Simulated assay, not measured.
Amino acid sequence: MSHTATEPQLDRSAGDLELAADEAKAASGGDAREAVKALLVANASLEREVALWLQR
């Protein structure tokens, strides 16, 4: 998979990503859809935080 200049590259192994996905699912009571929703909310919050930092 190729990456663009603006796309962040993950510094995690496939095993680390699998573990992180399993942990997110477990934290959401085993419901993968709820885990995705929680991660989307967290990502949006981080994007807002970055936008505020860039405005300074």
Rank of each mutant, 00 (worst) to 15 (best):
H3L: 13
H3A: 11
T4E: 15
T4F: 02
T4V: 09
T4M: 11
A5S: 13
T6R: 13
T6N: 12
E7N: 05
P8L: 04
Q9A: 12
L10S: 14
D11Y: 05
D11S: 14
D11H: 06
D11C: 09
R12Y: 10
R12S: 08
S13N: 02
A14T: 09
A14V: 08
G15P: 04
D16L: 02
L19W: 02
L19Q: 15
L19C: 11
A20F: 05
A21E: 08
D22K: 00
D22M: 13
D22F: 07
A24D: 13
A24Y: 03
A24C: 02
A24L: 04
A24M: 10
A24G: 07
K25A: 10
A27Q: 10
A27P: 01
S28C: 02
G29K: 00
G29E: 09
G30T: 06
G30K: 09
G30S: 03
D31W: 03
D31R: 03
D31K: 02
R33F: 01
E34H: 11
E34P: 05
V36R: 02
V36M: 01
K37Q: 15
L39H: 04
L39Q: 14
L39D: 11
L39M: 11
L40Q: 14
L40M: 12
V41H: 05
V41W: 03
V41G: 09
V41C: 04
V41I: 04
A42T: 14
A42L: 13
A42C: 08
N43Q: 12
A44P: 08
L46I: 12
L46G: 03
E47G: 07
E47K: 13
E47P: 00
R48Y: 05
R48N: 13
A51R: 03
L52A: 15
L52M: 15
L52Y: 07
W53A: 15
W53H: 15
L54H: 07
L54A: 15
Q55P: 04
Q55I: 04
Q55A: 14
R56Q: 14
